[in-house]
Simulated scan of single mutants.
Amino acid sequence: MPELSRRRALTAAAVIAGAPLVATPVARADDHHHDSHGSTPGSFDEVYKGRRIQGRPTGGSGHHHGGGYGVYVDGVELHVMRNADGTWISVVSHYDPVPTPKAAARAAVDELQGARLVPFPAG
């Protein structure tokens, strides 16, 4: 079985979600507080457009999967990653960096357009 590449995963996620691969920027006034470059953002738990989004430090410290930060949409993990410049991206909006994990969760909800987030295979 071929190895799952990032490109294949993004394509599959877009097809399943029925969403285009190009994301629409999502920036909200309350999301523009930038953390100091090395700090971990605080927790959040809210309902955004009818979807429950949550984020919290996980205690891990790797550079993959948010570097010790977990983001969830309706209880399903949204894989996020922090870029070198301190911005965040997710598997759903990979080419649209945002300032915070909360903004990444909101961007994912916007891109999903009501579709369910499918768990992303780790590996």
Rank of each mutant, 00 (worst) to 15 (best):
residue 75 G to V: 02
residue 72 Y to T: 13
residue 76 V to G: 03
residue 66 G to M: 10
residue 111 E to L: 14
residue 91 V to H: 15
residue 82 R to N: 10
residue 87 T to Y: 08
residue 110 D to Q: 03
residue 112 L to N: 13
residue 91 V to P: 01
residue 87 T to W: 04
residue 91 V to I: 14
residue 52 R to L: 02
residue 56 R to K: 11
residue 71 V to A: 05
residue 98 V to Y: 07
residue 84 A to M: 06
residue 50 G to P: 14
residue 51 R to V: 14
residue 47 V to T: 15
residue 54 Q to I: 12
residue 57 P to S: 07
residue 60 G to F: 06
residue 51 R to F: 02
residue 88 W to C: 08
residue 57 P to V: 00
residue 100 T to G: 07
residue 96 D to R: 09
residue 39 S to A: 15
residue 45 D to S: 15
residue 57 P to M: 00
residue 70 G to K: 13
residue 54 Q to Y: 12
residue 60 G to H: 10
residue 68 G to S: 09
residue 50 G to D: 12
residue 70 G to Q: 14
residue 58 T to R: 04
residue 55 G to P: 01
residue 88 W to T: 07
residue 42 G to E: 13
residue 104 A to P: 08
residue 102 K to A: 15
residue 90 S to L: 01
residue 84 A to D: 14
residue 52 R to F: 01
residue 38 G to A: 03
residue 109 V to Q: 00
residue 100 T to K: 08
residue 105 A to W: 10
residue 113 Q to R: 15
residue 107 A to Q: 14
residue 78 L to E: 05
residue 39 S to M: 10
residue 64 H to E: 11
residue 97 P to C: 04
residue 99 P to E: 05
residue 114 G to C: 11
residue 73 V to N: 06
residue 53 I to M: 04
residue 74 D to Y: 03
residue 115 A to W: 04
residue 79 H to S: 09
residue 103 A to P: 08
residue 117 L to K: 03
residue 83 N to C: 12
residue 69 Y to Q: 12
residue 58 T to P: 02
residue 102 K to E: 15
residue 44 F to V: 05
residue 115 A to N: 11
residue 44 F to A: 05
residue 82 R to V: 12
residue 39 S to P: 05
residue 68 G to F: 06
residue 94 H to C: 09
residue 110 D to A: 00
residue 70 G to R: 14
residue 67 G to Q: 09
residue 46 E to W: 02
residue 71 V to W: 01
residue 56 R to I: 01
residue 48 Y to D: 02
residue 89 I to A: 04
residue 105 A to V: 11
residue 77 E to Y: 04
residue 72 Y to S: 08
residue 54 Q to E: 14
residue 70 G to F: 02
residue 83 N to T: 13
residue 50 G to L: 12
residue 93 S to K: 01
residue 41 P to K: 09
residue 60 G to S: 10
residue 104 A to K: 04
residue 38 G to P: 01
residue 108 A to E: 11
residue 117 L to F: 07
residue 78 L to D: 06
residue 84 A to L: 10
residue 97 P to V: 03
residue 45 D to C: 02
residue 87 T to A: 11
residue 44 F to R: 03
